[in-house]
């Protein structure tokens, strides 16, 4: 390095930059598809739109294929370019983020599958709207997580991580609501079981988005956040017929 010269952001071998950008572009593309899948799946549930649900199920394939492509390309860049330091972190993050995105895509697909069953049954309360609000919160977290990845904004990633608590709380509320419906009328049980799994899956999506946000922090700072994850899901403590507050 020449004296007094600020280290450049670019590699001397410019093909390396193009490779890194290309793999990250695949992640962004995958992220966009997953975001749309979350929103569409939740809309299909609220609107009882079987066609839309079917489309979400079909399009999950694209997400899976992209994950495979990302893994292949990342392996290739690691093998050919022997990345170090921040370059290595980027490639490791790419592998993890693609796994998280693929899982979120699967949950969205599962939501769409359950929608196809639920439209055959009478609606239970206003849960469709509540689930859609939850899905919207998760999709927004995902959008911000991806933005923070693209702009290397650790603060935004930190914010995403904190917002997972809201999603957890929405899940808590829905858990109680479904419990109540089931106790009121056993004929609701089938629908409520499906709805509960949907809520749980949305809550899990939030966890995966949190992982993505943590990867952003890792890429930017070189280490994962130290403090433990904010947790809001307390349903594991719920006992029979008793509120747990």
């Amino acid at each position: 390095m020449m004296e007094g010269k600020v280290p450049s952001e670019q590699h001397i071998l410019s093909a390396f930059d193009r490779d890194l950008e290309a793999v990250q572009a695949l992640i962004m593309k995958m992220g966009g598809l997953v975001e749309a899948a979350i929103i569409d799946a939740a809309t299909s549930l609220e609107m009882r739109d079987e066609e839309l649900a079917e489309r979400v199920r079909k399009e999950d394939r694209q997400i899976d294929e992209l994950e495979e492509l990302v893994n292949e390309e990342a392996a290739r860049v690691i093998a050919l370019r022997a990345p170090t330091a921040s370059d290595l972190r980027v490639l490791l993050s790419v592998l993890k983020i693609s796994t998280n995105l693929e899982r979120i895509g699967d949950y969205a697909k599962n939501l769409a599958k359950r929608t196809s069953v639920l439209v055959q049954m009478a609606p239970v309360g206003d849960s469709g709207g509540a689930l859609r609000r939850m899905a919207k919160a998760v999709a927004e977290m995902l959008k911000d997580a991806l933005d923070s990845y693209a702009t290397r904004d650790a603060e935004l990633a930190m914010d995403v991580r904190i917002r997972d608590r809201d999603v957890d709380q929405m899940y808590n509320a829905l858990f109680r609501e479904f419990l109540t419906h089931m106790m009121e009328d056993p004929r609701n049980i089938t629908a409520c079981m499906h709805l509960h799994f949907i809520a749980k899956n949305l809550e899990r999506m939030g966890d995966h988005v949190t992982s993505i946000a943590e990867q952003v922090i890792y890429v930017v700072t070189g280490h994962l956040p130290e403090e433990s994850r904010p947790k809001g899901d307390r349903t594991s403590l719920v006992t029979d017929g008793e509120e747990d507050e």
Binding site: A15, R18, D19, A25, L26, Q62, L69, E73, R76, L80
Partner: peptide, 10 residues
């Protein structure tokens, strides 16, 4: 839809 492979490798 086409996914771009790392073009310089091609």
């Amino acid at each position: 839809m086409e996914d771009l492979r790392l073009t310089e490798r091609l």
